[in-house]
């Protein structure tokens, strides 16, 4: 389609008024996605956003593409069904930490292990926002919220470790306000053939403000962001003699290999930080190829359907032992 060349950010902005809280990290992600999508060269009618419930779930309404705002946690299942019927679409799932990891945990891991061709954007703000501030499955131990007035006693998930354990073929992490890094990760996710999981650290200014300051804050971020780039040495954080932290490569440099089949390497990287209050890897942890769910089947079935006419139906219904009464 020739017109795709002229697509602009405005082509992806729906007429719905955005209704997140002022200062919400979701605005930054939405703007980045809308700015980035024209470069994909895919006409808006071939793009579908599927979302679950939660603040992130509203995302689908704001993209001028096809969209389905589904039910809590079921986004990956709805998207799997859509992908199984249509192999000509670019399908994106927008979800949050409660949606993806709590009520929808089962659907998330199975979409990843099936390697369904959908891109899952996991907005992780470590809190339930839409229900007004309860602990989420990524909230840190001891967190005081309305539902945990004495501090959370449940250990959090590490979403990337979970995804890698679920056989995910593409696993990445980025930050809502990082205007260069976020589109770069989305670009790589879009180019990936199977399921992609992108965790986006997203600030909730109302119920969990500052959760990611160690990374989002310009000065602290410079120290704490460990950017992963395929083929490049991974810079670590070392402590100077005076106790200050600085980026560096202590010992022999480890070169990042996102394409390594063995998930142990990516898993080890995902364990470098258990909460985003210190040095944390950012980037593409894992990007490997594995057969995509139903990749050949959709075309095979479409071809079969083309031949499935009345005659084929008559033959099928009359298969086996039949008898005729005249």
């Amino acid at each position: 389609m020739a017109a795709t060349e002229q697509l602009t950010k405005a082509d992806f902005q729906s007429n719905q008024e955005t209704r997140w809280c002022p200062g919400c990290g979701d605005y930054a992600v939405l703007a980045a996605v809308q700015s980035f999508f024209p470069e994909l060269g895919i006409p808006p009618e071939r793009i579908v956003f599927v979302s679950g419930i939660g603040c992130a779930g509203r995302f689908a309404y704001y993209m001028d593409t096809y969209g389905m705002h589904g039910i809590h946690g079921r986004g990956p299942a709805l998207a799997t069904g859509l992908a199984s019927a249509r192999d000509d679409l670019s399908i994106w799932v927008v979800t949050g930490d409660g949606d993806a990891l709590s009520i929808g945990g089962n659907h998330l891991i199975h979409a990843l292990r099936r390697n369904v061709p959908v891109k899952i954007l996991l907005f992780n703000n470590q809190i339930y926002g839409l229900t007004k501030g309860q602990a989420s499955p990524t909230s840190e131990l001891g967190k005081v919220t309305k539902s945990t007035p004495f501090g959370s006693i449940d250990a959090p998930f590490n979403p990337l470790s979970l995804a890698i354990g679920a056989e995910a073929t593409f696993v990445a992490r980025t930050i809502d306000t990082d205007k260069q890094h976020l589109p770069a990760v989305l670009r790589a996710a879009a180019a990936h053939e199977g399921a992609a999981l992108v965790e986006i650290y997203q600030n909730c200014p109302v119920f969990n403000d500052g959760a990611f300051d160690a990374l989002r804050d310009k000065k602290r971020g410079e120290v704490n962001r460990i950017y992963l780039e395929h083929g490049e040495p991974i810079r670590g954080v070392v402590r100077d003699a005076d106790g200050a932290l600085r980026l560096g490569s202590g010992g022999a440099p480890v070169v990042h290999d996102a394409h390594r089949e063995d998930p142990a390497f990516a898993f080890a990287l995902s364990r470098l930080s258990s909460s985003p209050d210190g040095p944390t890897p950012i980037g593409i942890f894992r990007d490997v190829r594995r057969p995509v769910s139903g990749s050949d089947l959709t075309a095979e079935l479409a071809a079969a359907r083309a031949g499935a006419d009345d005659a084929a139906l008559d033959a099928l219904m009359r298969s086996g032992d039949t008898w005729t009464i005249s």
């Binding site: 579908v48 599927v50 096809y66 389905m68 589904g70 039910i71 079921r74 299942a77 709805l78 998207a79 799997t80 069904g81 859509l82 992908a83 199984s84 019927a85 249509r86 679409l89 659907h107």
Partner: peptide, 11 residues
């Protein structure tokens, strides 16, 4: 949900 997602896609 998969059946419904497929229906959204015209199945």
């Amino acid at each position: 949900s998969m059946a419904l997602g497929a229906a959204f896609g015209g199945a």
